[in-house]
Nucleic acid binder design. Structure first.
Lengths: 141, 141
DNA sequence: CGGCATCCCTATTGATACTG
DNA sequence: CAGTATCAATAGGGATGCCG
């Protein structure tokens, strides 16, 4: 449940933590680690949107671009490349004229997208909660 | 399950989609919508890390700063403010000298962080998968 | 249609210094 | 300790143009 991948004591009241076994198991909390980079690809500005869209089914490039409102051609291409590189997205080219490029999720991508959609649905449902909190916060300033 | 908040047909083979009822229900796929902004706060560069850390328990400012390796003082303060503003994080000041500021998750924040941790744990476990995919991708270039 | 390369600008970020 | 303010660097991202 908790992300206690490191063996050091996490909650030192003086704020001083030990340094034993810190690198035995990867942790997102360490800078420049693989898991943090992977999370970055997934949660980046357009990454999670592309994954959520592809969770609905496969898309061709421009259809996906229309689905993910506001993304530029450049950023979508860049995002999809990163996702493909990390094994989340599959890219299939049909040698027709004009060319057809189909994007879909790999198994890994599908499992990731499922978790992501789970998160998104929670947040979509809680938009009013957040809006109320924000209004209260802004009022007290 | 799927994020089919809009009523239009999503999968038009010609790539042409209708435009009926597009704005009836909020959707992350629309630009400048509240849900997308909220997602941005949560999945932003430091947002998800702060939430994951606070999911372990409450932290004081500098302890959290040490936990989230690599974050600058400025960005952590900024991130926490955004999370507090949207009702995910609670900030409690103890009027001692020196001052003590404790950060913890609200109920909403805790439920969000739980989903997030779920995603993080999947990705941490799949780091080897991603690494292999990446190696294969880079080799084919 | 589905890209990649280039230019260019501004928003984010990080260092540094200062404050209650 | 827990911030805020200021400034400089830089990476993100849009616009444009070209190509298979």
């Amino acid at each position: 449940m908790a992300l206690t991948f490191r063996k050091r004591k996490l909650f030192d009241s003086a704020g001083i933590v030990g340094s034993v076994d810190d690198d035995l198991i990867p942790s997102v909390f360490a800078r420049d680690c693989a898991s943090r980079e992977l999370l970055g690809t997934v949660t980046g500005k357009w990454g999670w949107l592309a994954l959520a869209a592809l969770h609905e089914g496969s898309y061709r490039f421009n259809a996906l671009r229309r689905r993910v409102d506001g993304v530029s051609e450049k950023m979508l291409a860049q995002t999809l490349q990163a996702l493909e590189r990390d094994g989340l997205v599959r890219r299939e080219v049909q040698a027709t004229i004009p060319p057809r490029v189909e994007y879909s999720l790999t198994d890994f991508g599908a499992r990731t997208a499922a978790k992501l959609v789970d998160l998104i649905e929670l947040l979509e449902a809680e938009v009013p909660t957040a809006a109320a909190a924000r209004a209260a916060y802004d009022r007290s300033r």
